[in-house]
């Protein structure tokens, strides 16, 4: 409203100028408002932990896109501790930044705080992991689709084989796990010949993933596919398959943020047959774009609520070497 008034005023001023006949040096009507809307704004970033490659990628995107516009970015690092995260978010609400980018540890912990923050006039953008509490924007992966994509590939690979697959989950209570699982289940429901022989949680730990996979492979030497929930953890899964000498027989599917070493290199080496990648730099750019839009449009919390799902790229041996599929973290 304020912006349009300003534009109107500018137009009136232009008309009032005598003898303006040539359209040279005409004032661009948007940029002043845009820069003013962004300048001096404060964006807070609350990841699960700054030690994750995802968080580093997102923060890099935010900084490169927003800082040149005069937006201040502050980071709070709860270091995987959700109580610390909740406390940091509570403190942020009292500090009143304009936007908080929240990476939820699960669907419930931050829900009340997100509601409280938006009630206090702070825009909440959720990244990659949506809370049950909807906020102004969600940027990130569609986990149900993620599960479905992996499951379809594994089902395809198991055609004509034993049909036995194993699932290596992260934390059972993590919502991403639950959503991914529902995606997998919907695909499996259409393929009754596929049998899940083991569905275990490795708590995001690679050594545990390896132990579980080793045991499962010993019990089911004819296993044809494994769906893992995170590529960093599934290094262990892949190592177990590799050690058992079953790399050709067992189709290993996993997912992750597309960092070269964790994704493309592993697919190239044959450790994973599939890594469904959500590009973290793209997510970072999406985040920044969303924030730019929200701030320049002067959106108030609660007025709108929208999603921006990240494109999922299945990385297989066929495209792992292609330019731009993976991204490399700067040290």
């Amino acid at each position: 409203m304020r912006n349009s008034l300003r534009i109107l005023a500018m137009g009136v001023a232009l008309l009032a100028l005598p003898g303006v006949t040539v359209a040279k040096g005409i004032k661009e009507p948007l940029r002043d408002g845009y820069y003013q809307a962004l300048k001096g704004k404060k964006v807070a970033f609350l990841p699960g932990a700054m030690a994750m490659d995802l968080a580093i990628g997102w923060l890099a995107g935010l900084k490169s896109e927003l800082e040149p516009q005069g937006v201040e970015i502050v980071v709070r690092d709860p270091n995987f501790n959700i109580q610390a995260g909740a406390q940091a978010l509570t403190q942020l609400i009292a500090e009143k930044p304009d936007v908080i980018v929240v990476h939820n540890p699960d669907v419930t912990t931050y829900a009340k705080l997100i509601k409280q923050a938006e009630a206090n006039g702070i825009l909440i953008v959720q990244i990659n992991m949506a809370s049950l509490q909807k906020s102004t924007a969600y940027v990130g992966v569609d986990w149900v689709e993620m599960g479905a994509v992996q499951a379809r590939h594994v089902v395809e690979a198991c055609k004509g084989k034993s049909g036995k697959i194993a699932i290596v989950q992260g934390d059972l209570t993590a919502a991403a796990s639950a959503y991914t699982m529902s995606g997998i289940e919907s695909v499996l429901a259409e393929n009754p010949d596929i049998k899940v022989v083991s569905n275990q949680s490795a708590s995001w730990q690679s050594d545990k993933a390896k132990s579980i996979t080793q045991t499962v492979l010993k019990q089911n030497p004819d296993l044809c596919g494994i769906i893992g929930f995170w590529d960093n953890m599934d290094r262990g899964t892949a190592a177990a398959v590799d050690e058992a000498g079953l790399s050709d027989q067992v189709y290993v599917a996993t997912s992750g943020g597309g960092e070269t070493k964790a994704a493309c290199d592993m697919v190239k080496s044959g450790a994973y047959d599939l890594n469904v990648v959500y590009s973290v730099p793209n997510q970072g750019a999406n985040l920044a774009s969303t924030i730019k839009y929200l701030l320049s449009a002067g959106v108030k919390p609660g007025e709108i609520s929208g999603q921006m799902y990240t494109t999922l790229t299945p990385v297989t041996a066929a495209n792992a070497g292609d330019e731009g599929i993976c991204w490399t973290m700067k040290q």
């Binding site: 501790n81 959700i82 540890p105 419930t108 931050y110 829900a111 934390d171 059972l172 209570t173």
Partner: peptide, 14 residues
């Protein structure tokens, strides 16, 4: 009462 959270990591390391 404050957070209504049943997240997996609650109380870990407390």
């Amino acid at each position: 009462a404050r957070l209504a959270s049943v997240g997996g990591n609650i109380g870990v390391g407390m």
